[in-house]
Computed example of a mutant assay.
Amino acid sequence: MRKRSIKNTRVNTEVQRAVGSIIRGGIKDPRVAPWTSVVAAEVAPDLKTCKIYISVLGDQEAQTETMKGLKSAEGYIRKELAAQLNLRNTPELTFVLDQSIEYGVNMSRKIDEITEKERLARREIEEEADEE
């Protein structure tokens, strides 16, 4: 199976969906933050390994604790994944912290702050022009 084939894309999507539902509903570890989401999954063409990109909304401590909790639950997640998906091989899972959602939220917040400052500056200029 080639890396960019349609079959590989489908497998990636199904693994992402299944791991997301397992994390939301199956893991009882208190270290795993409630705002944990699966951003992407990359299954190797030979179905032996899989990188799961995880995004955690929270501070640095919540992110590290969530990654520790997911690492300890790796066997359980793999077993549940094998039960949900009919694959020839169940891939070894590797969790990677993806901070793109957090980065996007921070950028959006900064844009909102700049927009608010510009709006206030315009209002002050208009008020000064009205006074003259």
Rank of each mutant, 00 (worst) to 15 (best):
L87D: 07
D29L: 12
E42D: 14
G20H: 12
E126P: 01
P45Q: 07
A121F: 04
S5F: 09
D98N: 10
G75F: 12
D46C: 04
I22W: 03
I22P: 02
S5T: 04
Q63N: 10
V39C: 06
L87K: 03
R123Y: 15
A129M: 14
D112V: 03
V32C: 00
V56E: 04
E127L: 04
R4I: 12
G69I: 00
E80R: 07
N86C: 02
S37R: 01
A121T: 07
K79Q: 14
Q16Y: 12
N12V: 05
T36H: 06
E118W: 07
R31N: 00
R2W: 12
N12L: 03
P91N: 10
G75T: 10
R78W: 01
P45W: 07
E124G: 07
E102N: 06
V11G: 06
S37Q: 05
E14Q: 10
A44K: 00
A18V: 03
S21F: 09
S100T: 14
V38Y: 02
A62I: 14
K51L: 05
Q84D: 11
Y76K: 09
T115Q: 12
Y53P: 00
S37Y: 02
I77K: 08
A83I: 08
P91V: 09
E61C: 09
V32D: 01
R17T: 13
C50F: 00
R24Q: 12
K110E: 03
V105N: 15
A33R: 03
I77G: 10
K79C: 14
I77P: 03
V105G: 13
R88P: 01
R109C: 12
Y76C: 02
S108Y: 01
G20K: 01
T90G: 02
L85M: 05
L57V: 09
G26Y: 07
G26L: 14
R4D: 15
V39P: 04
A83Y: 04
G25L: 05
N12E: 08
I111K: 00
R4A: 15
S21N: 12
A83E: 09
N106F: 14
R123T: 14
E132S: 03
A40P: 08
R24D: 11
E80H: 01
K3M: 11
P34S: 13
L47A: 09
A44S: 13
G25W: 05
E92Q: 08
M107Y: 01
A44L: 04
E128K: 13
W35E: 15
V15P: 09
R4E: 15
P91C: 11
N86I: 06
V11Y: 08
R122Y: 15
M107L: 11
Q63R: 10
L47P: 03
G58F: 11
E124L: 08
K110I: 05
I6R: 11
K48G: 06
E126C: 02
M107D: 08
T9C: 15
R10W: 12
K28Y: 08
I6Q: 11
R119W: 04
K117V: 10
A33V: 08
A41G: 07
T94W: 02
V96E: 00
Q60M: 10
V39S: 07
E132Y: 10
